[in-house]
């Protein structure tokens, strides 16, 4: 895959996050360029979700800076960050279970003008046709794969420039994982940049342009996906080769 970065969308510099006395991130730095798919891989507890939550404004960093489109966003409230065009599809999908699929999608477009919502929905259904059939059902009746699709569709409803996905493959069958990742690539081709957090390094390396490897709160390796596929460290620790 070619790298199509013609400008930096998100830049994170020396990001430090602590939960009480415990330091979850020890100053990590990375960038996501316009049009890119960037992946953070790492084991459980490496700080991947914490990174996304800090960028989304859900946890407050204790050091470093986060810029989106050149503007500082660290310390801004979460809802203001979404408005800038940066959304997160959270780990575990977090659907609003008691609400219908339609209501979930409408919530995704919370800050968008009412007039464009049905058009955005039609566009989102091109990637997720199954959701269209389920519009009136409550989210609680969907299967795990459908919930992941709902979470991604909900994220797209905000028409983000950058969408962050936290463990989209978690708990899904191999066929569904393939499907989800091909949709992610498709979304990227349509112009949305992607920051992906994954434990499934094999799939992550296939869709990503560039990869950062996170271990215990630090970036230990980074490079293009092709480079990291050949790295002995990645091969032994993440690809099981």
């Amino acid at each position: 895959m070619t790298q199509q970065s013609n400008g930096v969308l998100l830049s994170v510099k020396d990001l430090v996050v602590s939960y009480g006395a415990i330091r979850a991130l020890h100053g990590i730095s990375f960038e996501v360029g316009e049009g890119e798919v960037v992946t953070l891989i790492g084991a459980n507890g490496a700080g991947k979700s914490t990174t996304l939550n800090a960028v989304s404004g859900l946890v407050r960093p204790s050091g470093g800076e986060i810029r989106f489109l050149g503007r500082r966003i660290d310390g801004k409230p979460g809802h203001a960050i979404v408005r800038l065009g940066l959304t997160q599809v959270p780990e575990g999908r977090r659907p609003f279970l008691g609400m219908t699929v339609r209501e979930n999608l409408q919530l995704g477009a919370f800050n968008r003008p009412k007039s464009e919502i049905s058009e955005t929905m039609d566009r989102v259904f091109k990637s997720f046709p199954r959701l269209k059939e389920r519009l009136g059902q409550t989210a609680g009746t969907l299967s795990g794969g459908e919930l992941q699709m709902l979470a991604m569709a909900r994220g797209l409803m905000a028409r983000p420039r950058l969408m962050m996905l936290d463990e989209p493959s978690m708990g899904l069958s191999p066929i569904l994982v393939q499907e989800i990742f091909s949709i992610i690539s498709e979304i990227n081709r349509q112009g949305t940049s992607i920051l992906l957090v994954e434990q499934n390094a094999y799939m992550a390396l296939r869709v990503a342009h560039r990869v950062y490897v996170l271990e215990t709160g630090e970036v230990v390796l980074s490079g293009t996906a092709a480079e990291l596929r050949e790295s002995p460290r990645v091969k032994s620790a993440y690809l099981g080769e």
Binding site: L58, G78, H79, V82, F96, M99, F110, N111, K114
Partner: peptide, 24 residues
């Protein structure tokens, strides 16, 4: 209404509501 939907969303899950762009 949109605000009513946001109220229900906030009562279910505050962090996810923030990710929707809702001022909780």
């Amino acid at each position: 209404t949109k605000t009513g939907r946001a109220m229900r969303a906030v009562s279910m899950d505050k962090d996810t509501s923030r990710l929707m762009g809702i001022d909780v």
